[in-house]
Design a binder for these strands. Structure first.
Lengths: 220, 220
DNA sequence: AAGGCTTAAATTGTCGACATTGTTGGCGAG
DNA sequence: CTCGCCAACAATGTCGACAATTTAAGCCTT
């Protein structure tokens, strides 16, 4: 499912990607202290490449660093989740707004087709497909904004954190049918070239998503 | 004027800050190729610290890197400026919205006091004060949002780029009186605890600012 | 026994050298 | 004369070792 067209060529890249996945998937639990030496041994590389990987992880907001002390994986807190979704609401709302004017007709058609596939998946209750379909939907709108800053901030910065919360809080993929309706409304607004409505609907969609995760968080 | 409470203790930090300033101020022109060896010699440090500084500069979107090729300072383009201001509009709009509910009464009072000082500066046509006052105004609202992601994205990521455009396109500081009115309206909305209005006004304020810079850009 | 100081261990920060990759110039074939 | 291959060069990527700082333990004092 993953949209990394950029192949990681250098050793640092591979270590970075591997570490990021380990953190996001929870193989390295939240709030874990990261020892450069230990990681270097585990990945069979030098400490320099681990350092570079850690630096890049830090700019993804997946780890926190203190000078002369070390790095540790971020802690997942309810407050942090809310803050994350506030930023996401802001950025993805703008992405939807821009997508309404910047996406080509071809891209919009593909988005509508994706919505159709998504609908089939929902009918058959394929939960794995729901998750992938949701990510793909948001991904296309973000890219459709044609704004490099937005794309970079969301795909490199926010989405891995969002996924980390989802995975580690055990979000399977409920809220599918309602989410599908919201998706359809957003696509309609975009194909009508209505930026204001697209932004409003996307922001509400993310607000609902946040509240859904919050309620899950409160249960556990 | 600068608000870096975080003192740079390590050698990488100092190199990073120095390099960032050199790039933002234009001492190192846009689109310049950055040689690790040369910079290491110029700053009197090892290549490793220059590498780390360059990595951090990259996550600020001030330089671009290609594997096995090298790094170069970003190019300033009209399209890039527009994209940057679109993101800024989105994020600072959300910051104003959050500030309207999250800022303490004390912080709001200080913001109003700052507005008064700013007014005096405008009366006396102190252009240096106008620039500093504008930055300080936006800074307080961003911090007032109490959202760590927002604060980090804007202060570490966006603002240095904005400043780079301002400095290198020779923006002295016009648009002061109108901007002052806009600032006052925003403060009023925040002190009235009106999130929606605060966001709308901030977004319009940044849209105006963008158009102003765009017209300057078209002249040259 | 509790607290603070000193010292030792471990971790991070920095350095110089080596390996690998990309680039540039020249040479030769067509 | 142009195109393509090859080699030397320069730049980035990686590594192991040393230096500086933080942390922990141990000892001494009170």
């Amino acid at each position: 499912m993953w949209f990394d067209a950029e192949q990681s060529v250098t050793s640092s890249d591979k270590t970075f990607v591997a570490l990021r996945q380990a953190i996001v998937e929870g193989d390295i639990p939240a709030a874990t202290k990261l020892s450069e030496a230990e990681l270097a041994g585990r990945f069979g590389v030098s400490r320099a490449v681990v350092r570079e990987a850690i630096n890049r992880l830090e700019s993804c907001n997946l780890i926190e660093r203190k000078a002369n002390v070390g790095a540790r994986v971020v802690s997942l807190t309810p407050a942090g989740l809310i803050e994350l979704y506030q930023v996401r609401e802001s950025l993805e709302g703008m992405a939807a707004r821009l997508a309404a004017t910047e996406m080509s007709q071809t891209e919009i058609s593909e988005l509508q087709a994706l919505l159709g596939e998504h609908y089939d998946g929902v009918q058959q209750r394929q939960s794995y497909y729901q998750e992938a379909g949701d990510v793909d939907f948001h991904y296309r709108i973000i890219v459709g904004s044609k704004n490099q800053h937005l794309i970079s901030l969301l795909l490199n910065g926010i989405y891995h954190l969002v996924r980390m919360y989802r995975v580690q809080l055990g979000m399977a993929g409920p809220r599918v049918t309602t989410a599908f309706d919201e998706h359809r409304q957003i696509v309609t607004a975009i194909s009508n070239r209505d930026p204001e409505l697209a932004e409003i609907l996307m922001r509400r969609h993310i607000q609902y998503s946040r509240r859904n995760i919050e309620s899950k968080l409160a249960q556990s």
